[in-house]
């Protein structure tokens, strides 16, 4: 998979399809870091592991570059979805972005509770099937029980919060400047742990229809709050009720933003002959 990715990246650079390839590099001190590969020779140091979300960095690079600067990003499924969400939000120009999609391993998917561990545009690697987060033991253990038990579990978790804003800063889709979480009207300032209902739930709800379940918030959290679990219920609802999933297609807007109601025109049952007539009509 690595070799194939390198080849694709080299081809892109040589054919000047993009000004640079953005990926991970093992540097001379054997430390892995994000790197802009502008020279095909540098690609020898390209690595694909560990999982490192590049979407937000890619957005920053593109925003601070001249207009015709094209960037190819080596991305996993979640990264690609995040990039698509950023395109939807007008943060990235669609034509300035190329993606080199790589698939995640089964183990990685299990760690991330990822139900879609591959990008839509897959270039290297084998697609593995996703994990249903609600079948996962960790999630089930956390989300079962009645309201009271669940509230207690969440309270214990969220009381650890040190309000570092890591969840917000690491989120690839949190782009607002200023942010409502810094506004005294919504979130009390100077209080640690952060107010649960406002700080955490406002953050969670703002991402309700944009969360790509990358888990960056959770990984960034220094006190290990399972922040991704907050999103799971809403993601499930969106999928089941409206057939919508964030980050699959830059053209599909969130159903929560439109007034369209997915209701049948009429609940009347119609006899069969009408259909047979209609078929004749169409022919």
């Amino acid at each position: 998979m690595l070799e194939k990715t390198k080849n694709i990246a080299r081809q892109i650079l040589e054919e000047k399809k993009a000004s640079a390839v953005f990926g991970l590099m093992r540097n001379e001190w054997n430390i892995i870091q994000p790197h802009l590969f502008e020279d095909p020779a540098g690609l020898a140091n390209l690595v694909l592991e560990p999982k490192w979300l590049l979407a937000k960095l890619a957005m920053r690079i593109l925003r601070s570059s001249p207009e015709n600067y094209k960037l190819a990003v080596i991305c996993r499924g979640c990264d690609e979805r995040a990039l698509i969400e950023l395109i939807k939000r007008n943060q990235i120009e669609k034509e300035n972005l190329l993606t080199i999609g790589i698939a995640c391993s089964q183990e990685q998917a299990a760690i991330c509770l990822c139900d879609r561990p591959y990008p839509e545009k897959l270039d290297a690697g084998e697609k593995v099937s996703g994990v249903d987060p609600f079948q996962d033991e960790r999630v089930r253990k956390f989300l079962i029980g009645n309201d009271k038990e669940r509230m207690k579990r969440w309270a214990d978790m969220l009381k650890r919060c040190i309000k570092c804003y890591g969840c917000r800063n690491s989120c690839p889709i949190c782009i607002c400047e200023p942010c409502k979480l810094e506004d005294d009207v919504w979130v009390q300032r100077g209080v640690v742990p952060a107010e649960t209902i406002t700080f955490h739930l406002i953050r969670a709800f703002h991402l309700s229809d944009t969360c790509v379940a990358c888990g960056a918030c959770q990984e960034a959290c220094p006190v290990n709050i399972p922040l991704l679990y907050l999103q799971l219920g809403m993601r499930k609802t969106l999928r089941e009720k409206y057939g919508y999933e964030a980050g699959l297609d830059p053209e599909t807007k969130s159903p929560v933003l439109s007034s369209a109601f997915e209701k049948p025109d009429t609940d009347r049952e119609f006899p069969d002959w009408i259909n047979s007539l209609r078929e004749e009509d169409e022919s």
Binding site: L143, D147, R150, M151, S208, Y229, T237
Partner: peptide, 21 residues
Amino acid sequence: ANHTAIKRLELLQDLLDTTGI
């Protein structure tokens, strides 16, 4: 416009359920 509101608020109800509120 109220359709939009219903959809959004129903989603919020989901979040409230998740957290046990």
